[in-house]
């Protein structure tokens, strides 16, 4: 038996919105630690690795580890039937061919449940090595979304250049070119508005804006995003999943293969 109850159900709605445009289907791997999902997009350019920690749920029961194969578009549609303030419970029997979602209104005067068929998925997992990145950039997630959206006007790719002075995002195309420079915040009152660069070595890398724009769908989960880069390795974009009190419930991480010279 697997059962997980999340009082702040909107977090699960936001998690689904952050992955459904990038992935068609994926397995939720449920264990005592929590619910994990790892999957690549169909072209193997981007990977999603997400974690919802068991202690982030108000109730969490997982008698034995199970893998729930899910059509993500279907799950997203069902979660849209939950109100933003609903409590969401996910339930699956061992060896079941279906998963149940229960939505309770805060006053418990409306309870709905939806059963969805599970899929048999042949999932292959990639081993992601622990990496000490040359640069880690933290910035407001809304700022990153805006940069990706604005530079998409000019081209398909963004060059991210991180030095001790700050970060520069550049794009060029038929109509011209554009640059956005962010300086490190000297002093900010609010931590979530800060731009912080932790740099061991300067890095310049090129990435597809199409994929970065998919990643920014996770911005509603977190006020800050971090970009971790080293020369010639995939970029890691991380949004932490925090509840209203700011406690960590997990993360959504995206990995994106760089554009490289042949």
């Amino acid at each position: 038996m697997f059962e997980a109850r999340l009082v702040e159900g909107s977090l699960l709605k936001k998690v689904m919105e952050s992955i459904k445009d990038l992935l068609n289907e994926a397995s939720w791997d449920c264990s005592g630690n929590g619910m994990c999902l790892q999957a690549m997009d169909s072209s193997h350019v981007a990977l999603v690795s997400l974690m919802l920690k068991s202690d982030g749920f108000e109730n969490y029961r997982c008698d034995r580890s199970i893998s729930l194969g899910i059509n993500l578009a279907s799950m997203s549609k069902i979660l849209k039937c939950a109100s933003n303030d609903d409590i969401i419970t996910i339930r699956a029997e061992d060896d079941a061919d279906a998963i149940t979602f229960m939505f309770e209104s805060p006053k418990q005067d409306r309870v709905s449940d939806y059963e969805m068929k599970l899929m048999n998925l042949d999932t292959e997992h990639l081993g992601i090595p622990d990496t000490e990145y040359a640069c880690v950039i933290k910035m407001p997630s809304g700022e990153f979304s805006r940069i990706c959206r604005d530079l998409s006007v000019l081209g398909d790719s963004v060059i991210i250049c991180c030095t001790k002075d700050g970060v520069r995002f550049s794009a060029k195309g038929d109509l011209g070119n554009g640059n956005i420079k962010l300086a490190q915040s000297a002093n900010v009152d609010k931590e979530e508005e800060a731009v912080v660069v932790d740099m061991r070595e300067a890095v310049t890398l090129t990435f597809s804006l199409r994929y970065l724009n998919f990643f920014t769908k996770a911005a509603p989960l977190s006020s800050q995003v971090s970009l971790s880069m080293s020369e010639d390795v995939p970029l890691m974009v991380e949004y932490k999943i925090n509840d209203k009190e700011g406690d960590s419930k997990g993360y959504v991480r995206y990995y994106l293969a760089p554009k490289i010279e042949d």
């Binding site: 193997h44 995939p234 293969a257």
Partner: peptide, 14 residues
């Protein structure tokens, strides 16, 4: 001209 690489050239199958 830069080309898009894939993740499978960086990460091994687990």
């Amino acid at each position: 001209v830069k080309n898009q690489s894939t993740l499978t050239s960086f990460f091994k199958k687990a």
